[in-house]
Design a binder for these strands. Structure first.
Lengths: 158, 158
DNA sequence: TATCATGTAACTTATGAAGATTCATGAAAG
DNA sequence: CTTTCATGAATCTTCATAAGTTACATGATA
């Protein structure tokens, strides 16, 4: 099973959007993410519904942040995406009659629930602003600009 | 993405095997797990290669534990299965040139690596014997026997 | 009114576990 | 020695879902 990259992609996209002067079209974001504009709209729709980003049609339209990066946590994004399945492993039957299987499901389910809680707690504590600052660090330490940032305005932090 | 149930199924199967008098054929195990005998052989192959179970051909053949349940941890099984992918989420690109994406991958990767470590630590501490005892508890507390255990010998713990 | 951009439906592709079929191999029973 | 039973393994199909694609409607701006 190929892994779900929606969370990763939205983090990537939103940080870029913060760096851009105006609204970013789905097409531009799709290029940044090496994907398709429809995939961008589809994925971004959840964030819009949760008030994290805004979209505008027509000339000069596109996507823009609805709040500062520091006021958006990784958990906000994860939840806006509909809390996609975290684990690739799971029980074979959800409500087994076999007591052995019930014991297995209980143990495994509890273990997964615990680490899920830990991960989401962490997501709640990390903001997109934190990630953006980590990017700025990388840049200072001799990183080169990616193609889609070269010759761009409002590259704050440089 | 449908989740990978191999770990769950192997835990289930091995506890049953401990309860059975002789060797269990792939067919019998497949019935217990509501699956196919070939799936059982395919999944069990890794456990055999790691010396957790033994298989015998011919009359009276089948699968048997190679060690006591208390000497098999959940981590042993997970590793014998080839350490299947734990998470359903992940990066969209493995080695991105974009520094923003690198920062996102670093943060997300570190968070996932941390909880993975916590989960595997837990798996190392839980043995199949522990799970079997939890099953025995359920049984004492008014549980009924699953169809494939009714009328069976060597139901230790009853 | 022409252009640009989102919104959305519908379809195809890619991936990997799971399921199923088939035959070879080897062990035990008769 | 032959039959039966079981694993071993190759090969194919099925299934679920994110991702990718195509097409068109809707609305905003120049």
């Amino acid at each position: 099973m190929r892994s779900d990259s929606r969370l990763s992609r939205m983090l990537h996209a939103l940080i870029h959007m913060d760096r851009l002067a105006g609204a970013a079209t789905s097409e531009v974001l799709a290029d940044m993410l090496s994907t398709n504009a429809v995939v961008v709209r589809r994925t971004m729709a959840g964030l819009r519904d949760q008030g994290l980003v805004r979209s505008e049609k027509g000339h000069g339209g596109g996507w823009a942040l609805a709040r500062p990066l520091d006021q958006i946590s990784l958990l906000d994004i994860y939840q806006a995406l509909g809390e996609p399945q975290l684990f690739a492993i799971g029980p074979s039957t959800d409500n087994p009659t076999c007591l052995v299987e019930q014991a297995v499901n209980a143990e495994l389910g509890a273990a997964l629930a615990t680490v899920r809680g830990q991960l989401l707690d962490h997501f709640a504590k990390v903001s997109l602003g934190d990630l953006a600052r980590q990017f700025d660090e990388k840049l200072k330490q001799g990183g080169h600009l990616p193609p889609h940032l070269q010759g761009m305005q409002r590259l704050d932090g440089l």
